[in-house]
Write a protein that binds this DNA or RNA. Sequence first.
DNA 1: TCTCTAATTGATACTAAGTATCAATTAGAG
DNA 2: CTCTAATTGATACTTAGTATCAATTAGAGA
Lengths: 146, 146
Amino acid sequence: MNEQVLYQQALQILRDHGYKLTEARKQVLDILMSHAEHLTSSDILALTVKSDANIGRASVFRALDLFTDLGIIRPIYHESQSPHYVVFESNGHHAHLVCRECDKVVDLDECHLGELLDGFAAEHKFSLSGHLLELFGVCEDCSLHK
Amino acid sequence: MNEQVLYQQALQILRDHGYKLTEARKQVLDILMSHAEHLTSSDILALTVKSDANIGRASVFRALDLFTDLGIIRPIYHESQSPHYVVFESNGHHAHLVCRECDKVVDLDECHLGELLDGFAAEHKFSLSGHLLELFGVCEDCSLHK
DNA sequence: TCTCTAATTGATACTAAGTATCAATTAGAG
DNA sequence: CTCTAATTGATACTTAGTATCAATTAGAGA
């Protein structure tokens, strides 16, 4: 999914919920969406320091919290205790593979689980808006080295 | 899955990896597996204080880190920034529904995704050992109140 | 059963992520 | 352009998480 489209969609979600499109929020969003790897709060903070408009540390945390609440991103555990943030696709989905050995993460473009998961949610009378799927295993590189 | 079976399996995983079955580790495991809700580190710490053998705070964190490394549990971020720990089923799987409105979590007994996920992993040459599936949406109660 | 030792612990000190506060700033509606 | 509720950044504070180290202990082996 094109990151610019995702960025615009996220801005729209903010507008739709009555939030202002502040420089801080736009910058944090931009950073989140222009990096393939899943960043931590401190990663993001370090990257804001390098930009024109210096964003306060508290604002980074506030933006991340807001985007999490709105379902734009999701904090996940990965290697360290500080959460890494994954960006949901436009359909609210995100899926990736995590190697238990080397901690490599491979995002999946498409997991084709939509209809199946709708069914599960319906059984419990949930109206589904998204999902996060983490697959754990051993990657090829690590399998070869054992 | 019977919690006693899971507990014994977890102990076996520890033995298999050469770890000692200390009181601290056993107690943290027991607490994790005897609670339906997903506990945070501070929840667990509070519960250890109530038991006969008082476990040090550092030991709780160490046990949680070890169990996470070994794939017995998985930290998830939910409501607060402090992770909640979910216990994997014996097949390495865990699935639950999260309501975006009230934050209620409903664990799913079985998601029937085994073979499908094996296929995804194989495409990327991962040998799959488990998965975590989070479904986000709005629960029945919250739907009715809107 | 006992010995022994590497593993592990608990308490303490420390770090840093995360949060609260508040005067200053600003996005954007009108 | 005005205005104001929203938001900010800086600062202070909290607390989860981590490092350190002497003391303790799980369990292998005799």
